[in-house]
Amino acid sequence: APHIPGPGYRELNCDDPETEQAALAAVDYINSNLLRGYKHALNQIDKVKVWPRRPTGEVFEIEIDTLETTCYALDPTPAANCSVRKLEQHAVEGDCDFHVLKQDGQFSVLFAKCDSSPDSAEDVRKVCPDCPLLAPLNDSRVAHAVEAALAAFNARNNGSYYQLVEVARAQIVPLPVSTYVEFAVAATDCVANEVTDPANCNLLAEKQYGFCKSTLTQKVAGEDVAVTCTVFPTQPVLPQLLTDGTNVPTPMVASAGPASPPAAAVMVGPMV
């Protein structure tokens, strides 16, 4: 092949519309393959190189920064409608590398790798000296708050027994002394008010996930639990995720599971 003078790739401006299209396709890919944690939004395009690809098309080698939104990964709300978590809520940033193929005007992700990290405590303190910080998810107060909230939710729920899927976020609030938690649940084949041993309950084949937010407040004579769960529409039984070496993103969160439900799905209202 004739030697192509120069670096072999073309430079593009990071704010070029074509670059932005590639970056948005990449973030859509992440959000539709995220299995735990929260959806992310594009925040800044750091670098881009465009390599020619034989026989046709181009590959965008792109580095982007994202910010966590307040929508859980399996929430059917379109990511574009999800608010970016504010600095004072202890924001979380994603750093992602992608290879995005552009062919016949279409963008498709060939490779994705993302890592996420919370903002520093100092930065949160700068914007809000009294705001609570993210707490370690294995903190005993967090585990207790989730357990109490899930028990309260199931106790008032006359349908399926819901079991914990993951604790997504937690904060220890200094005043009033309380623990704030956000966690994901899934319906099982047990009836909530008949469960004797939750270990005998199994997730439904058609997954029905929910997302709960709860505050456990310490009182003089005990503790108060306030919990609100939003149950998402059932998910069709999904084929096993690609595992034949296709580069699925290094999840920003711990583990993998089914892709998020179709965005058109109508959400079941919040259940308190």
Partner: peptide, 27 residues
């Protein structure tokens, strides 16, 4: 500035292509 004849004058500020604009905030 007025360039001396025969001296190359920079064609104005070079637009730094990357990193691009920040859409929300930087942490």
């Amino acid at each position: 500035g007025v360039g001396q004849p025969g001296v190359a004058v920079p064609a104005g500020p070079v637009v730094r292509p990357c990193p691009g604009r920040i859409r929300h905030f930087k942490i």
